[in-house]
Nucleic acid binder design. Structure first.
Lengths: 241, 241
DNA sequence: GAGCCACATTGATCTGGGTCAATGAATCCG
DNA sequence: CGGATTCATTGACCCAGATCAATGTGGCTC
């Protein structure tokens, strides 16, 4: 079922190298482990690359890996039998995946941009956690953060209008922007369809709503994958309802 | 801002008693701590009672307590400025609350039925966690379980029809029913308004949908607070879309 | 047990966002 | 560079569920 690259692309699965040179380390739970103990973690890690559009976690598959996303971005989603899709989140560098307790994954994950993954055996990872309480604490913190975000998303999906949803999305994306980025410029690597499935809307409504926000001078849309926020204050007010 | 009973009702805040005799212990994260170490936990706990309808966590208040619900049931919700409300979950005996990492609570909590709470100082609780890795692991497992449930709820709110939402709700409630309960009988301590705010619908739609399901012979509604599932199979199919 | 009050149900109508249908704009190749 | 393919936008129309408006109904108090 899982569309996983076989064999996992080369990389250096059994050396310390992938961790020490990992440019996601600062953003990731791994930085709870200090340099001298990093080897224990590194020897569990298998690095692999996934190209854009490829699914690397399939809902319902045995959940035997734990992932850390070290480059690129991906979408997490759930599907219904008739194809209806809900994207539950977009994840970027530094995000971990596969905490799920059940024996199978509760969601699918697909790369939006080319992704680099650091993959761990779940069972070995969990055994290792016992020796690294700081790492476990970090996981707990991340899980708590995600729960808060999930509750906010439930408010959006259950009670906000299309306009408020799109404004909230843009607002959140502008806050989550990589720090190197120009103020008020939002890069949207995902398609309109993805945004729609994230916000519980249709492509048409997302497109219309963006056009309307542009018409009102709140944003500019220099290209389909970029949005400039002209009035962050008004956008924030709109997002809050 | 917080409507918290002052002074916290009597109980035995500084004895082992509340933990050893706690009938939620089996369902709760506390059972990761064995009898001999329970005293360390018990000395942090303050037991208090909250009557139905009373708010005991207020969104935005400083998040300095960690709660364990040991009796009754409560609803968790987020409010928008104009009063729109999204209930993010119903919690019962054994559930913990207040994991949130930020300095303030991200949601409010209100008792539906009279609630008994076991309250801990968050800072002391987190310090204690270092000595009880099993307890921390349990928290992580619970958090992961809640994340999975949250993703399922996002699918419901973003993509399911009213009919599917109500069916999903009944289906989930029937699975979560206390084990002592008669098969297929669902107790609904919350109001129709609460159900509506949980499912992202209006009271009228919830009521109409329940009536329709009854008309189709899927369920019976002997009283407003009780539902009997006549055809669990068909209900499950409906819930899945 | 009469009157009240909050909640639930049911009906009539309205509307935000979905659906269906073109049309435009990029990107990809050969 | 031109045709194709995919994605985004825009328009016309429709419908599931919201809103507005009564009408039940069970649980209080007095």
């Amino acid at each position: 079922m899982a569309v996983f690259p076989r064999p996992p692309l080369p990389g250096s699965p059994r050396s310390l190298e992938p961790c020490l040179s990992c440019d996601a380390r600062a953003d990731s739970v791994c930085n709870a482990v200090d340099d001298e103990h990093l080897a224990r973690l590194a020897e569990l890690a298998v690095v692999s690359d996934v190209q854009a559009g490829q699914t690397f976690i399939e809902e319902g598959d045995p959940a035997d890996s734990f992932f850390n996303l070290t480059a690129g971005s991906a979408k997490l989603y759930k599907l219904m039998a008739d194809g209806r899709r809900q994207i539950t989140g977009f994840v970027a560098k530094g995000h971990f995946l596969g905490l799920a307790v059940s024996a199978t994954y509760a969601f699918s994950a697909e790369a939006i941009e080319p992704v680099r993954l650091c993959r761990f055996s779940r069972s070995r990872m969990f055994r290792l956690l016992g020796d690294f309480p700081a790492l476990e604490r970090r996981l707990l913190e991340r899980a708590a953060t995600e729960l808060v975000a999930a509750q906010e998303q439930m408010l959006l999906l259950g009670r906000k209008t299309a306009r408020e949803r799109v404004a909230s999305f843009l607002h959140t994306q502008s806050l989550a922007a990589p720090c190197g980025r120009a103020r008020n410029s939002i890069e949207l690597p995902m398609s309109r369809g993805d945004i729609a499935d994230y916000l519980g809307l249709t492509v048409e409504t997302v497109s219309r709503t963006l056009s309307r926000l542009r018409g009102e001078g709140l944003i500019e849309i220099p290209s389909a994958t970029m949005v400039l926020v002209r009035d962050p204050g008004r956008l924030a007010v709109l997002a809050a309802g």
